[in-house]
């Protein structure tokens, strides 16, 4: 039992961060039906920004740098939407274009970083990086706890933004029914742009929360691709809250699987679950099963 808890607790903690990563992807899909294959690379960019702010002379604590990361990536996301994404939204024929455009953008990010910083792994190690506390027999890493609390905080702020602000309501309205939102006088292009910015920024903050215990390379995004897409499908494509729950569940599955198999293959379990979900509940754990017959 204790052994089980020793895996469960860190699983929940990392799951919070996964939730954040996935919620950005879920928000973007929900609002504009675009699967952003560059999402994990925005995470990677955010990790480098966090590292630069920490190691590049500023000595800024990665958790304190989060607001700056959020703002930078909000603007970056909006710019990417304005420059690229808006041209491939809407038409039926554009599905292929969306896939290759976002893959291409992600690849460009990876290689620009590779050229600038090489593939040498970078680490962000604040003084408290290895500290932690025992609660009973269970060790709780300080940085992972902070990352989890940060995720909860951002989730709460996201909830307030989507439910209590005019722009947030407009985004929800557009994601539920863009035609009705148009009749309300909502500028769909603007809500798309903001939603893309916020979605990218959410994932970026998730990346910033990871840097204290995840080394950074230009290709670090691949480690999280499985996790992010599985979480989004698990929670139901397009649902932000679903993606959140999906993220936490995946953190738990990854971690608890280590009771039986090596940590190196934890993502195999995630993928098996992902395929299983597609088989039995393609609209996610919480969605209604709807299938073309």
């Amino acid at each position: 039992m204790v052994e089980f808890l020793q895996f469960l607790v860190p699983g929940i903690l990392i799951g919070g961060v996964y939730a954040l990563l996935a919620s950005g992807l879920g928000l973007i899909f929900g609002v504009m039906r675009v699967v952003n294959f560059a999402q994990a690379d925005f995470m990677m960019l955010a990790m480098y920004l966090s590292w630069a702010l920490f190691a590049g002379g500023f000595g800024l604590d990665p958790f304190l740098a989060v607001p700056a990361v959020f703002v930078v990536f909000l603007l970056l996301g909006m710019a990417v939407h304005w420059l690229f994404i808006r041209f491939v939204i809407g038409q039926r024929e554009n599905h292929d274009a969306q896939v290759i455009l976002t893959i291409g953008l992600g690849l460009i990010f990876q290689n620009l970083i590779l050229i600038r910083y090489s593939s040498e792994p970078r680490v962000v190690a604040p003084a408290y990086a290895n500290e932690g506390d025992f609660i009973g027999d269970i060790f709780i890493s300080r940085v992972r706890l902070y990352a989890f609390l940060l995720s909860l905080l951002v989730a709460a702020l996201l909830f307030l933004f989507l439910n209590r602000t005019g722009t947030g309501r407009a985004i929800r309205a557009a994601s539920e029914n863009w035609e009705a939102a148009t009749y309300m006088g909502i500028d769909i292009d603007r809500t798309n742009r903001i939603a893309f910015g916020v979605g990218v920024a959410l994932t970026a903050v998730g990346g910033a929360a990871l840097v204290t215990f995840q080394s950074i390379t230009p290709f670090v995004g691949f480690r999280f691709v499985v996790v992010m897409f599985a979480a989004v499908v698990l929670g139901g494509l397009g649902s932000v809250s679903g993606a959140f729950v999906g993220g936490v569940l995946i953190g738990i599955i990854q971690s608890v699987s280590q009771v039986w198999t090596s940590a190196a293959v934890k993502n195999v379990w995630v993928f098996a679950l992902f395929l299983l979900i597609l088989y039995v509940r393609p609209n996610g754990l919480f969605g209604k099963v709807q299938r073309a017959i």
């Binding site: 005019g166 407009a170 929800r172 029914n177 035609e179 009705a180 939102a181 009749y183 309300m184």
Partner: peptide, 23 residues
């Protein structure tokens, strides 16, 4: 006011009204 009502089903009545005054 479109055919088929197009209510924002996952939002409260108050939020639906608030979206109405988006103009």
């Amino acid at each position: 006011v479109p055919q088929g009502r197009m209510i924002f089903a996952s939002m409260t009545v108050a939020d639906n009204l608030r979206l109405g005054s988006h103009r």
